[in-house]
Design a protein around this nucleic acid. Sequence first.
DNA 1: TTATTATTGTAAACAGGTTTGCAAATAAAT
DNA 2: ATTTATTTGCAAACCTGTTTACAATAATAA
Lengths: 340, 340
Amino acid sequence: MKKRLSINDIASQLNVAKSTVSFILNGKAKEKRISNELTERVLKFIEENGYQPNQLAKSLSTGKTKMICLLVEKISDYFFSHIAYHLEALAYKNGYKIIYCSTENDPEKTKELINLLRARHVDGYIITPPNGIEAEIKALVNDNLPVVLFDRFLPGTPTDYVGLDNYNGTFEAVEFLISTAAKKIALVTLDSQQTQMLERRDGYLAALRRHHIDPFILEIPFENDVDTTVSQSLDFIKSNPDLQAIVFATNYLALSGIKAITEAGLHIPSDISVIAFDDHDVFKIFNPSISAIAQPLDEMAEQLFKILLDKLENKVRLKDLHKVIIQPDLILRKSTKTRT
Amino acid sequence: MKKRLSINDIASQLNVAKSTVSFILNGKAKEKRISNELTERVLKFIEENGYQPNQLAKSLSTGKTKMICLLVEKISDYFFSHIAYHLEALAYKNGYKIIYCSTENDPEKTKELINLLRARHVDGYIITPPNGIEAEIKALVNDNLPVVLFDRFLPGTPTDYVGLDNYNGTFEAVEFLISTAAKKIALVTLDSQQTQMLERRDGYLAALRRHHIDPFILEIPFENDVDTTVSQSLDFIKSNPDLQAIVFATNYLALSGIKAITEAGLHIPSDISVIAFDDHDVFKIFNPSISAIAQPLDEMAEQLFKILLDKLENKVRLKDLHKVIIQPDLILRKSTKTRT
DNA sequence: TTATTATTGTAAACAGGTTTGCAAATAAAT
DNA sequence: ATTTATTTGCAAACCTGTTTACAATAATAA
């Protein structure tokens, strides 16, 4: 209950100016030509009495909070929570703390969150942007605040960006399926206009086009609950009984889709092959195990953090934009099988 | 790039004292008997010029940061990321932001994190404590900082607490299995001394004892990777060929265990029944779907937040400790079946 | 007219750090 | 002995709010 020691307390107890204490604490004793003797005395006192500077005061005067925010669609999603995990490890090593917020993909909520975070003077922003917040992102960039978008970007709004080569992900997955002699290959995706979803669709279409195969696309509404998604997937499967393979554009679509496939009485992979975009722990466990287009989560987090940190520490000019496109890993498991 | 408006700017531009502006902004105009005319003038100016108070300065002077920290074992875990999601929704509604940190169950790291968070003056703490940080928790409580533990507690360290009735969870699961005529029922758990794990074990043991049935327990080392867990589970299953049911003490143990069961060539539920502690999205999707002892995530988050908020807003005395024990839901799916 | 009371708003201290510019004391140079 | 240079450290301003204690003016009462 006793108050924490402040720099003023130290100064007055040692009969020294607080500026002197501040210099010593920040390793500027030499530079400011404080005698070794005094430096020792102050350090010893601090050691004995356990001083920890008040970060708030520090932040107020330096303008740096050593906090970054992580604004994702939904923190409980597999992908985002794992990115969050890796980011935090990096932040920890570098003295940063992370505030997370879920945008729910709602531009209005996201705008408000950005404003609240600005009021708190977070040092940097890592964001999976919903469409419709272009102006706010531009404002951040304009005010020289480091912003890295990831997973998807905002066309026409240049920023730092880390993302997967989504196009290549579905392209190669489909190429693989075709190589297993599949001819009728569907894509189950979201009715989303976000870039990552469009890229995944484009990769799928391009691979089919290359082989003169017709596409079959099911678009699931973004707001669906699981049961609705399952039943829509089931309808789709039933009305396309000759489907030989399905590529799912997200891992949760795959989970619902697999349930639908099972309910349709079909067997994976003998009746139908399955590849999911975005790996998931349980894909290994499933019987049969599920092939996936994996996003290297740790690499993404590392790139994200590096880009941000370089700007936070002025190793790089704010105006220089960095875009990192990461190649996916096509992980083939038992849900895809050469058909004869 | 232009600096944000500060209360000083407003005051000088309107030729008014900053204290006056502060009173008006905080709705104390009446109380401080500022004339309606001046109040209007200031509010109009702010409306037009878009002022947002600097939270850092506010925090420094009020001592309140409107930040709470969420210290969990690992933010990417299904259980924790979902709790995080629900907590954030509540925090958002109440003007709080959440900093998350993963303890990795390492007491030393946790101690350091607590110190860092104290330096940042977070208003409240929500923690899943590793054993070994009793002193730090006591120090927090002693310094009148609101702390709510959850998922597990520290015996001998009284605090607010929200947890599941773990004992009852496994007890009822085992009772159910016995009612399906299972006689040889194993528990696969972690080699952990944390309270939630001990309670789950105790519930299992008590139910068996009540029916004079012998226990079979497999303890998986906490640090195991997935493959090792699968292979240890497989060994266990093979060396107990007459097992009729397994209760898994966590959902990840269940996932590995199910893989092991499959690899052993056994069929769920005809050969062996399965119940997992802690539900998981994919349990519905699995074929067969997996029965689970579900923790009501939203209810836990709500209780956690309520207890914390009541203290943050002084609706309740800091010294009065609140313990909430939530009843689990035994969700029976296809992985458990009456045997004949 | 003088004293009292309302009315309205302000100055200054405070929270706890950082940083700039200068002062005092001592040593060296002339 | 006086000037100059060097060493060492401090006072004060600043960051941006909140809050306490009081001041100035106008209105009312005696």
